[in-house]
Design a protein around this nucleic acid. Sequence first.
DNA 1: CGAGAAATTAACCCGTTGGATAAATACTGT
DNA 2: ACAGTATTTATCCAACGGGTTAATTTCTCG
Lengths: 255, 255
Amino acid sequence: MRRAAPVINAIWTVTQRATGLAKAKRTLKWQRDPEGMRLRILEAAKQEFSTHGLAGARVDRIAAKAGANKRMLYYHVGNKDELYLAVLEGAYDKIRSEERGLDLEHLDPPEAIRRLIEFTWNYFLRNPEFLSLLQTENLARAKHLKRSTKVKSMHSPFVEMIRTVVRRGVDSGDFQVAVDPVQLYISIAGLCFFYLSNSATLSVIFGRDLLAREAKDERLAHMVGLVLAALTGRSAELFEIAKAPKSRAAVAQTV
Amino acid sequence: MRRAAPVINAIWTVTQRATGLAKAKRTLKWQRDPEGMRLRILEAAKQEFSTHGLAGARVDRIAAKAGANKRMLYYHVGNKDELYLAVLEGAYDKIRSEERGLDLEHLDPPEAIRRLIEFTWNYFLRNPEFLSLLQTENLARAKHLKRSTKVKSMHSPFVEMIRTVVRRGVDSGDFQVAVDPVQLYISIAGLCFFYLSNSATLSVIFGRDLLAREAKDERLAHMVGLVLAALTGRSAELFEIAKAPKSRAAVAQTV
DNA sequence: CGAGAAATTAACCCGTTGGATAAATACTGT
DNA sequence: ACAGTATTTATCCAACGGGTTAATTTCTCG
């Protein structure tokens, strides 16, 4: 916590006065900005909850990070639990909206699956807080999520996407099996999620940095190869295609 | 837990006096049992840390659950952090020892892989606290694990097992690719881990109980099918074999 | 421009919690 | 049996942390 709220607001104020209003009649100690404040609070809370978990999160730290007075959290959002739930809902909202942007319908089935895996992988990489929040919420046995009608109404478009892609793949002969789309969805998410969410312990156990550039590339190739091989039945080719020369060398080394 | 320390000790004492020593000269208020005490403390701590996480765990609750005076935790193990690390080390020690008991060498490769998946799945099912502890530790970015020379020296025998199994499978023609054993290990663990550790949120999202008997059976079948199909290249047959009639119906329904 | 509402700050409250201190009791070897 | 040590109990406490109360300041609109 580098700095308390009033300071930030003071800075803003000074700047605005200097540039915008020329000669202000008196010194403004702070400035109103309810929407901005709410956003800063939620952003700060997201950081705090994802790095410290629910119980480990500190309300004072959230306030400090948001450049706000602690009272503001309760004024704009609610108590710690409500704050946490708001963050969680925001996180689900965000991923759902990005998921909707992914159009798999016009791709040929194997390519669609590849895209799906890549999206999931990259989304997790770009939003590590999402992973942490899910971990935290599961540690709490989804206690809060269960009370959220908002999240429950946000259906992922992926299940339906996968369903049609798989159907098309089976019809075209690309795929050999009509997997349950929910299972496949969970498998893809799981392959990505576990590697990233557990990278800290796994890195210690294996004595190598799983988040290094090469390791991540290799992992993506492996996952795409694994899933597509299972669906198409052509493992050899797929694994080869999936792997960059560098990665193949790494495999040879460890195998 | 069921009973507080003094009570347990009192009961023990009474029993022993009544049966063993006939007429005890005076009433014992408590009994010494350093080893037992330590075990009870660690067991209670495991429960507490796995259900509440590190920050959410309460030292007083651990003491109560262990049937001990709070002071005992510090006397026998150490402060909260040391207690947590001891629990974590115990958890790793346990899984490693069970892993060592799994002999895959004499099985034909596909069967070996199936056994491996089943073991992992069942171990996670039987030891949900292990999953929680890992989640907690990863939330802490493995801060404690990094300091544990003990855990770092406990190498999982699985990587080597997988390496030889894969090699044998490739040689025999059962497998089409020589996957990196570490990647495969992580994938198998991930498929199992994610489903179980995130079952709470996933169950809410999908509106179905992922821990119901049938759902679990179906999941295991799916995972075995997926991995073996990828390795052998014979997806259709494997998925069919893997699925019980009931599960197949479920798939048909959702596909 | 000024009064009332909205937003923000400042200060405090009080139960909780990890940890510590000291006293009491049980055990062990001699 | 008894002295010395190991184990356990009984209290205490200072800091922390979530939440609240009350005062202050800014903004809006008639």
